[in-house]
Each structure stands twice: as C-alpha cells, then as structure tokens.
C-alpha cells in the first residue's frame, strides 16, 4: 500500500456498488424495512461455539414501531447488532430496505449504516468536545453533505426534538434527557429508513424516560419505522408490536392490548 493510498479514500466507492433490489414481491406487498430469514450468529469463545441467535426470521414493515424485549443474555443485543449492520451474519439472509446486507463488506456496510439506519444508544455516545449541532451533523459529514446544508439540517433535527435553543451547547452542559434527545436528533438527521434504539431509556430517570418515549410515539405517528430494544416491559408496551427473544430464539409475536393493529 502506498502512502497515497493511505490518505486517499476507498478505491471502491459505495455509491458505485449496484443496488440489490429484491425480485418483485410475489404477493405485491410493499418492500419490508427489515427482512431476516433464518438468521444465525455464532461466536467462538475459546473452543466453544456460542449460538447467540439462531433460526431468527423477522419481518418489519415501514411505519411499524417494534419493541424487541428479552432478558440480558437472551441474544437481543446480538440481534440489534445484526439489524444495525454492525455485525455480520454467520448464516441466513438479511435484507434492509430491499438491499441484501448479508453479502456486503465493511465499506458497503458503513455506507448502509450511514444512509439507512439512525442509531440511538443507551450511553448516548455523544462526542463531548463537540457542540450539539456538531454532534448531530456527524452522519451527514460521512455522507458527504456540504457544511451549510449540514448545519441547516442539524438545527432542523434539533428543533424537531425540542432543542432548537441548545444547538451550541456541549453535551456536558445538557441533562441526560436532553443528551438523549440530541442523540435522537442525530439519528433522524440523515432521514434513515430505520430508527434503531438500543435501551434508549436505560440511563434516564422516570421523567426523562417518559419524555423520550413520548418523542418515540411522536416519531411513530409521523410514519417513522422504529425498532426499540429493551429489557423493560413498561417501555416495550409503548410499541405497536413486541418481539420477545429468549435463548437466542425469537418467540411468536404478541401485541400489547389495545395497540393499533
């Protein structure tokens, strides 16, 4: 590898990768946002093979608000990593918004994460040295959006989560609830197909939790597809649909009473 290559970008640009649309849906339905078919993920711990998830088939359509719930060690984190394109499958197929993610390499996966998925993490994962809007613009930086537009869209996203007056605050100057809202704004700024929240209320007090959940409700009403991973039943109950994971296997669907079908 020459010095020039070290500095230059990847030779294969993700934009040039051919899109892999599904063959026309036989039933004529919309393309699902998430389609997992018989997915398994196996880790190797020393000489032992650990089946973190196996035989998982899951379909989530656009506009759904799905909670994935399970106790710790159930494999829900692995499922979240798989859905979030942060980890590769051991077997099975995964199509995200019609693209076959299972065959993608690291660079293509980065591109997919950037364009298709908005992450909200339990620990917020904001960069402490950057102001709120600089944190929010990060996905757009990697998408190659110009600075003017990045700032405009970041401020828009912050306004949408009710922090329009805090754009220049650093994370350290914001409360936990506000930090999580910055993180939600960051997840929204790229207008992704999927909002993937991993224990988003795990580090929040009850008031901030309620706040955050109201925000998710609001986003759901606006038509966002949301997948929320949690171990708290009360949080899961806010979703339209609950997927239970136990011992690496997805249990049959159940819908909270009174939730719209």
């Amino acid at each position: 590898m020459s010095l020039f290559d070290l500095f230059s970008g990847d030779r294969r640009t993700p934009d040039a990768a051919p899109a892999r649309p599904l063959p026309a849906d036989p039933v004529g339905e919309r393309i699902p946002v998430i389609e997992l078919v018989d997915v398994a993920k196996t880790y190797r711990m020393g000489t032992q093979e650990v089946h973190a998830v196996r035989n998982v088939s899951l379909r989530i359509d656009a506009g759904e608000f799905v909670a994935i719930i399970g106790p710790s060690g159930s494999g829900k984190s692995t499922l979240m990593n798989v859905i979030g394109c942060l980890d590769v499958l051991s077997s099975g197929e995964y199509r995200l918004a019609g693209e076959d993610v299972g065959v993608m390499d690291e660079v293509e996966l980065a591109h997919v994460r950037n364009r298709r998925i908005g992450f909200v993490f339990q620990q917020f994962h904001l960069l402490p040295s950057l102001s709120a809007w600089r944190n929010v613009e990060l996905p757009l930086v990697y998408a190659g959006v110009g600075r003017e537009q990045r700032r405009r869209r970041a401020v828009e996203a912050l306004t949408r989560v009710g922090l329009g007056d805090r754009i220049d605050h650093k994370p350290g100057e914001l409360s936990g609830g506000q930090q999580q809202r910055v993180a939600v704004a960051r997840a929204l700024v790229g207008d992704p197909a999927l909002l993937l929240a991993d224990e988003p209320t795990g580090n929040l007090d009850s008031t901030a939790t309620e706040d955050a959940l109201l925000l998710f409700d609001e986003l759901h009403r606006q038509g966002r597809t949301i997948v929320l991973i949690t171990h708290e039943t009360e949080v899961a109950e806010r979703a339209q649909r609950v997927v239970r994971v136990r011992d690496g296997v997805v249990q049959p669907d159940e819908r909270p009473v009174g939730a719209p079908v």
């Binding site: 070290l6 980065a110 992450f119 994962h125 960069l127 990060l138 990697y142």
Partner: peptide, 20 residues
C-alpha cells in the same frame, strides 16, 4: 468515538485518514 463514528457510517478509510 471510533466505534460511534463507524456506527454512523464512517468507512475504515475515513477513520484511518482522520488519525493520520
């Protein structure tokens, strides 16, 4: 930070360039 940047869509080349 590196993990976050990668999750948000930074390809390995962008991370390498940043530190270089």
């Amino acid at each position: 930070e590196i993990g976050l940047r990668k999750a948000l869509g930074a390809p390995p080349s962008a991370i390498r360039r940043q530190f270089l």
